[in-house]
Amino acid sequence: MRAIEIHLPSDSSVLEPLQQIVEAIGRSAEVEEDDLSSLSVAVVELAKNAMEHGNGNDPEKTVTISFNIFPNRIRFLIDDEGSWEPEKALGFNPGEGEELLLTRGRGILIARNLAKWVEFGLTPEGKTRVTLIWPLT
């Protein structure tokens, strides 16, 4: 199956439609109902990071989410127009003093804990790409 692509402006108004789309994808791949919101939270968190850190929340810039449903997993690729380094941009380490009371910076932590596999890399063009793998049982 070829990947299906979703192109989103970097605008928070698309987050709720994205959440619904991701849950529909999960449902079509027979992800358990109880896990659908974990899947959608993980993807939405990564999309928000792409909008903010990759595209500077510029609505003219696009976040592209492509997905494949394989027999044993769903693979999401989240691409933005920047070339940021997530580990340097977001060094949030909860439990470390005052950082616990920051009002932001928890997105990657949450995505990594809810999804089974989240990896940061680059597209062939050198833009930031996040890969999220959701195993299917």
Partner: peptide, 17 residues
């Protein structure tokens, strides 16, 4: 609340502070 992400947590932390 049927769905919440880190944005919601951020607001709760802000309220706490």
């Amino acid at each position: 609340v049927s769905w919440m992400d880190s944005s919601g947590l951020g607001v709760i932390v802000s309220g706490h502070t």
